[in-house]
Amino acid sequence: MILVCYLIVNIACVLAFFAWPGKRLHALEILTYWLFGSLLIQNYYAFLHINFKLIVINEALGPALAHFMNRTVMQPLIVVGVLPYYAASGTIGRKAAVLACCAGLLTGLEWLADWVGILEHKGWDGWLTAAFWLVALGLTVLCRRTFGRKLIREVKRNEF
């Protein structure tokens, strides 16, 4: 049952992401940031599960697939989806608020996964998860700045 619920939520996130107007991201940027965010998220869960043993992922097929969908689809989509809002925010305070809200959402989703039994935190501090999400979002913003500038420079250079 958990797998079906998470499947519906992940499909809804994908449809909402691609149907949402005003993204102003190039398709290559979306792919790059999605892969970058997915890499950060995969490494985060690998370190916590394999190296530090702070997370136990439920090995039953349904919860394991739900966790896999979350970390490869929904969480990277949220990370990529916050980038246009971050760029549209004018002041530093608004940008910090956007990142804090997104980190809070991602922390809440991880707490929800713990609550429904997809994974179990052992010795988990909520601030540690929120700190990871803030750092991951900051790195994604930095990736967007560097890659976005390179992409714009290449597009302008190759115009006819």
Rank of each mutant, 00 (worst) to 15 (best):
A131F: 05
C143D: 07
A113T: 03
G22W: 03
G22I: 04
E154D: 08
G90W: 03
A113K: 00
E59T: 15
Y86P: 11
H26Q: 13
E110S: 10
Y45P: 04
C101W: 02
V9C: 08
N158H: 11
C102A: 14
L54N: 13
R157M: 03
I50M: 13
Y85N: 11
A12D: 03
F17T: 10
G37W: 04
F52K: 12
A87Q: 14
A64I: 12
A100E: 02
V135K: 01
V80P: 13
L99C: 12
R145D: 09
G138F: 03
L7A: 12
R157F: 00
F36Q: 11
H121N: 07
W111A: 11
H49Y: 06
V79G: 03
A100G: 05
L109T: 01
G22K: 04
N58C: 05
A100Q: 01
G62F: 07
I2M: 13
L106R: 09
G104A: 04
A46G: 05
E159W: 03
A136N: 00
A97T: 11
A96C: 02
L39G: 13
I8H: 05
V79C: 06
T107I: 08
G22V: 04
G104K: 01
I152G: 09
V73H: 01
L119K: 13
H121M: 08
I8P: 00
I78V: 14
N51S: 07
F52P: 07
V79T: 06
S89Q: 12
A130F: 14
P21N: 01
M69C: 14
C13A: 07
I78K: 05
F18R: 12
Q75I: 15
E159L: 09
K156N: 13
W124P: 10
C13Y: 01
L106F: 09
L15M: 06
G123H: 10
E110W: 03
G62E: 13
I55P: 09
L119E: 12
C102I: 03
I78A: 14
L109W: 00
W133Y: 14
N10L: 02
Y86D: 10
W127L: 10
V56S: 14
A66D: 09
L31Y: 11
I92L: 12
A100T: 08
W111M: 13
L35F: 03
F147H: 10
L109H: 00
Y85C: 08
L83W: 04
C13F: 05
L134E: 09
L7T: 14
F47Q: 14
N10D: 14
E59F: 13
V56Q: 15
A16D: 05
F147C: 09
W34S: 10
L142R: 08
G22S: 06
I2F: 08
I50L: 15
N43K: 09
A97E: 09
G22Q: 05
K150P: 02
L109P: 01
L134T: 06
L105S: 02
P76G: 00
